Amino acid sequence: ESFERTINIAKGNSSLGMTVSANKDGLGMIVRSIIHGGAISRDGRIAIGDCILSINEESTISVTNAQARAMLRRHSLIGPDIKITYVP
C-alpha cells in the first residue's frame, strides 16, 4: 500500500542531488538517481523509484521530462529548504 508523504529537506547551500524523469502515466515524476553527498542522499528518506507528486506545493502531475528537470532546478535555487510530497 502506497501513500503520500510530505517532507521538508534542509539543503542549505548544497544541491538536492537527484535526477528525475516524467512518469509515463502522468502521475508526477520518478526519482532516477540520487547523488551521494547531496541533500536527498543525506536526508535518506527519498529513494530511487519513488514518485514525486509536488515540490514546494507545485504539482508535478502531467509534466514532461524537460519540465520535470526545469522544475527541480528552479526549486533547488529557492531558499535553504525544500518541501517534497512523494509516494515511496
Rank of each mutant, 00 (worst) to 15 (best):
A10M: 10
L16R: 01
N13F: 09
I61E: 12
V87P: 00
Q67V: 07
R69V: 12
I35K: 15
S15C: 13
E57W: 06
D50S: 01
A22E: 09
R5K: 14
I34L: 07
K83I: 05
G17N: 01
N56I: 04
H36L: 10
R74A: 08
I82K: 01
G37D: 10
G37C: 04
L53P: 02
L27F: 13
I78H: 13
I82N: 03
C51V: 13
V87A: 08
E57I: 02
G26Q: 07
S14Y: 13
P88Q: 08
T60Y: 13
G37N: 08
G38W: 03
N65G: 10
S54V: 04
A47C: 12
M71E: 05
I82S: 06
K11F: 08
H75P: 06
S76T: 12
K83F: 05
N56S: 03
A70P: 04
V63I: 13
S62E: 13
S15G: 13
E57L: 05
G38S: 07
G28Q: 01
M71S: 06
I48D: 05
G79A: 09
S41D: 14
T6E: 06
V87H: 08
I61F: 12
T60H: 01
S2V: 10
E58A: 05
V20T: 04
G37P: 07
G44C: 03
Q67P: 03
N8W: 14
V20I: 11
I7E: 02
T60G: 05
G12W: 06
V63C: 13
A39W: 04
S15R: 11
R42G: 05
G37W: 02
T6L: 03
S76M: 08
T60I: 15
R42N: 10
A10I: 12
N8D: 09
S33G: 10
D43C: 00
I7Q: 00
S21Q: 12
L77I: 11
D25F: 10
F3P: 09
A10Y: 14
N13C: 12
R42A: 11
R69I: 09
M18K: 00
I78G: 15
I61N: 10
Q67A: 09
C51F: 05
S62H: 14
Q67K: 08
R73N: 15
S2C: 11
R45Y: 02
M29H: 04
K11R: 13
I55R: 01
G28I: 00
I40C: 06
I46D: 01
N65M: 07
I52L: 06
I52P: 01
S33L: 00
E58V: 06
S54M: 13
C51W: 05
I40F: 00
G26N: 07
I40R: 00
R69C: 11
S15M: 11
R73Y: 14
K83R: 12
V87S: 08
G37V: 02
S21K: 09
L16C: 03
T64D: 11
G28P: 04
S14T: 13
T85Y: 02
A66F: 09
Y86G: 01
S54N: 09
L77M: 15
N13H: 13
R42I: 09
R42D: 09
I30D: 07
I9Y: 00
A66H: 11
L72W: 04
I52E: 03
E57K: 10
V20H: 04
M18Y: 03
P80T: 14
V31A: 02
I30Y: 07
S41Y: 14
S62Q: 14
E4Q: 14
I34V: 09
R5M: 10
A66D: 15
L53G: 00
T60S: 08
D43W: 03
I35H: 15
N56D: 06
D43Q: 03
N65P: 10
S76A: 13
K11P: 06
V31Y: 02
D81N: 15
Q67S: 10
T64W: 01
L27K: 15
D81H: 11
S54H: 05
P88L: 03
I78Q: 14
I34E: 02
A66C: 09
K83G: 04
C51D: 03
Y86T: 02
I55T: 03
L16A: 01
A39E: 04
K11Y: 07
T85S: 11
T60P: 04
T6G: 03
D81M: 12
A68F: 11
G28W: 01
D43R: 01
K24S: 12
S76V: 06
H75S: 12
I78N: 14
G37L: 03
I48A: 09
I82A: 09
K24P: 15
I35D: 15
V31F: 03
V31R: 01
I55E: 00
T85K: 13
L53N: 07
E4I: 12
N23W: 02
T6V: 09
D50G: 02
A47W: 04
V87M: 10
